[in-house]
C-alpha cells in the first residue's frame, strides 16, 4: 500500500478532514477559529483556503450555537463536524448535546436524526489548569444517544474520525491534546481505511496482568507496560479507543484469561468510564478474577495547575497498582 509521509495526530486530523470533505460535499466544519486561523491547534489547517467560508464556518464564540447549529445542519442533510476549542468549554453547549443531539432520533421516533461529529481536545499534561485540562467523557458516555470515541494514535484518530463522519449517529470525538504532537506515524494512503467504532485495540499480548486505558493515558500506560516487561513480566495492553459503545468482548475475554486487570484513565475516579468497565468486569467475571479490578485515575479534585503531572496517573502509580493485583 502507498504510504504518505509521517504525520502527528493533529496533522492527521487536518488531513483526514480534508479527505472527508473532498469525498463528500455534505461534510462541513464549524467552530471558533476553524477558518483562516485553521484552529488554535491547527486541526483544521488549510481547509478554509481549499473549501471556503461556506464549508469551513467561523462561528460566533458560542458552544451552544456551534453544537446546536450542527444539529439543524445535520437534520437538514449536511454532515457537520463541529470543533469545540477545548473540552473544558463544552458546557455552554452541553444542553444542546444532551437535549438535542442525543435525543433527536429517539424523541422523533427516528423521523429526524443528527449525524454529526463534535470534536474536542481533552485531557491534561499541558499546564492548562482546570479549564484547559479536563476529561469530561463520562458525561457523554452517561448520555444515551451519543457515541463517544477517544483515540490515542494518529492512525486511530484518522480511522475513527472517518468512521465518525460517515456514521448515522452523533459522535463525540475526543482528542488527547498532550499527544497531538507527541509522535509521528506513517499512515495508509487508502482514503477508506476506517477504524470501526466500538472496537478496542490490543497493543500488546501478555499473560500476567491486563492494562486497559484510552486517550492521553495510553502514553503512561504504555510506559508502565514497557517497565513491567523490563522486570520480566508480561502485561496485556488494551486501548479502548471507543468509550460508547466500548468493546466488552475484547476486555472481558482478556480479563477472563489473565484474571488480573488495572484500569487506567486520567478522568476523575468517581463515576468514571473505568468505573463502568470495572463494574461490568465484576458482574461478568467475578469467579474468574484473581484480584479485584483496580482503577488508577485522576483524582476527585478539579484539575490542578501546579500539580499538573502528579494528577495524571503516571507509570509509578500504574506499577504500584499492578503490584497490588499481582500480590493479591
Amino acid at each position: 500500500m502507498d504510504r504518505v509521509s509521517a504525520l502527528t495526530m493533529v496533522q492527521t486530523i487536518a488531513r483526514t478532514l480534508d479527505e472527508e470533505m473532498a469525498r463528500d460535499e455534505r461534510v462541513v466544519v464549524l467552530g471558533e477559529d476553524v477558518g483562516k486561523r485553521g484552529g488554535v491547534f491547527l486541526a483544521t489547517e488549510k481547509l478554509f483556503d481549499k473549501y471556503g467560508p461556506d464549508r469551513v464556518i467561523d462561528s460566533p464564540l458560542s458552544e451552544a450555537a456551534i453544537i446546536g447549529a450542527a444539529v439543524g445542519m445535520a437534520a437538514h442533510g449536511l454532515r457537520p463536524v463541529a470543533e469545540i476549542q477545548f473540552a473544558d468549554y463544552v458546557y455552554p453547549g452541553f444542553d444542546q448535546l444532551v437535549s438535542q443531539v442525543a435525543k433527536l432520533r429517539y424523541r422523533s421516533g427516528g423521523q429526524f436524526t443528527a449525524p454529526l461529529v463534535v470534536r474536542m481536545p481533552a485531557g491534561g499534561g499541558v499546564k492548562g489548569g482546570h479549564h484547559h485540562s479536563q476529561s469530561p467523557e463520562a458525561h457523554f458516555v452517561h448520555t444515551a444517544g451519543l457515541k463517544v470515541v477517544f483515540p490515542s494514535t494518529p492512525a486511530d484518530a484518522r480511522g475513527l474520525l472517518k468512521s465518525a463522519i460517515r456514521d448515522d449517529d452523533p459522535v463525540v470525538f475526543m482528542e488527547p491534546k498532550r499527544l497531538y504532537r507527541a509522535v509521528k506515524e506513517e499512515l495508509p494512503d487508502d482514503p477508506d481505511a476506517l477504524v470501526p467504532i466500538g472496537k478496542a485495540a490490543v497493543r500488546r499480548v501478555g499473560d500476567d496482568v491486563v492494562l486497559v486505558s484510552y486517550g492521553g493515558s495510553m502514553a503512561e500506560t504504555t510506559r508502565a507496560a514497557e517497565a513491567l516487561v523490563e522486570q520480566g513480566l508480561s502485561p496485556h495492553v488494551i486501548d479502548l479507543r471507543s468509550l460508547a459503545p466500548w468493546d466488552e468482548d475484547t476486555v472481558l475475554a482478556a480479563v477472563a484469561r489473565v484474571g488480573r486487570v488495572v484500569l487506567v484513565s486520567e478522568a476523575p475516579k468517581s463515576a468514571s468510564v473505568m468505573s463502568e468497565v470495572a463494574a461490568t468486569i465484576a458482574e461478568e467475571l467475578l469467579d474468574q478474577l484473581l484480584a479485584p479490578p483496580l482503577r488508577v485515575s485522576g483524582f476527585d479534585t478539579p484539575y490542578p495547575y501546579a500539580q499538573d503531572r502528579e494528577y495524571l496517573p503516571g507509570p509509578a502509580r500504574i506499577m504500584r497498582a499492578v503490584q497490588r493485583v499481582l500480590d493479591y
Binding site: A65, G68, V71, G72, G77, L78, Q96, S99, Q100, S108
Partner: peptide, 25 residues
C-alpha cells in the same frame, strides 16, 4: 415540522443551523 424539545429555546440554535444549511445548499 421538526421535533419539539421541552427545554426552552433549545431549538433555536438547531433552527439557525437548518437555515444556514439551506443557504449553503
Amino acid at each position: 415540522v421538526f421535533s419539539a424539545a421541552s427545554p426552552i429555546a433549545s431549538h433555536i440554535p438547531p433552527a439557525a443551523g437548518c437555515a444556514i444549511s439551506m443557504k449553503l445548499r
